[in-house]
């Protein structure tokens, strides 16, 4: 199977502190992958490194491109809508995406916006946390790329918005593309994940298929994830 994302010997320091080191990761196409880790473990940093908006040492390749400029063409990531003014209307943000990204599919955006009840006339500052996350999902999934990144789309939102977001992922994620979605509360998305990747102690400590965890360890994903933080003596 062809790899969509390959990370080799990635290291990243900030203010002389190790944030990430010895990161190795290969993701195949057509997968939904949960990126798990405690707050501050480096999940967002890893996403910024993948898109090239943060620079570390080591090699990151997305669909054969290893330069930051090349990678950006294959990765869709809406970094918390940073850079948009609070009084910006949703419709203006969509127009910006349409102008900047040649792979932006307006038709697809309309479908997503309708499904997620987004109102183009609303201003960014007036959006609830849930609506803001829905906008991020709609913008991110409207690009036609190989790798999609979603950073904590479920934190602090109501259960109805969560369901809508999960359903949009199932419905609109292209067959051959891979989604890397970070979360620190895995049970709400466990049924839609093919694999989990856990960031702990400044590196990736686990990359495993969810069905293998259920089948071989007879554990739910949340419990498996939590026991990584309990002493670490239980190695069977």
């Amino acid at each position: 199977m062809t790899a969509i994302l390959t990370i080799e010997s990635l290291k990243y320091n900030r203010n002389q502190r190790h944030i990430l080191h010895d990161v190795q990761l290969t993701l195949a196409g057509g997968k939904v992958v949960g990126l798990l880790g405690a707050n501050g473990a480096g999940k967002t940093t890893l996403m910024r490194l993948i898109t090239g908006s943060a620079k570390g040492s080591g090699a990151i390749t997305v669909s054969g491109s290893s330069t930051p400029v090349g990678r950006k063409q294959h990765v869709s990531f809406t970094d918390h809508l940073k850079g948009f003014a609070p009084n910006q209307k949703i419709s203006r943000i969509e127009q910006f995406y349409d102008a900047v990204y040649p792979d932006f599919d307006s038709q697809r955006y309309q479908e997503l916006a309708q499904f997620l009840d987004l109102d183009g006339q609303q201003k960014l500052a007036a959006l609830s946390k849930g609506t803001r996350e829905k906008l991020i999902i709609a913008l991110t999934l409207s690009r036609q790329v190989d790798l999609y990144l979603l950073d904590e789309p479920f934190s602090g939102i109501d259960s109805m918005s969560r369901k809508k977001i999960i359903n949009s992922i199932i419905r609109w994620l292209p067959d051959t593309a891979t989604l890397l979605v970070s979360d620190h509360y895995v049970s709400e998305i466990a049924p839609i994940l093919d694999e989990i990747v856990v960031v702990k102690d400044q590196t990736i400590v686990v990359h495993e298929e969810t069905e293998t965890i259920r089948d071989q360890k007879h554990m739910d994903i949340e419990t498996y994830y939590e026991q990584l933080y309990e002493g670490g003596t239980d190695n069977d």
């Binding site: 999960i166 199932i170 049924p191």
Partner: peptide, 14 residues
């Protein structure tokens, strides 16, 4: 397949 995944809220590959 995708409709079933939506109906059951599970992964398409599963």
């Amino acid at each position: 397949v995708r409709q079933l995944a939506l109906d059951l809220t599970v992964n398409v590959n599963t």
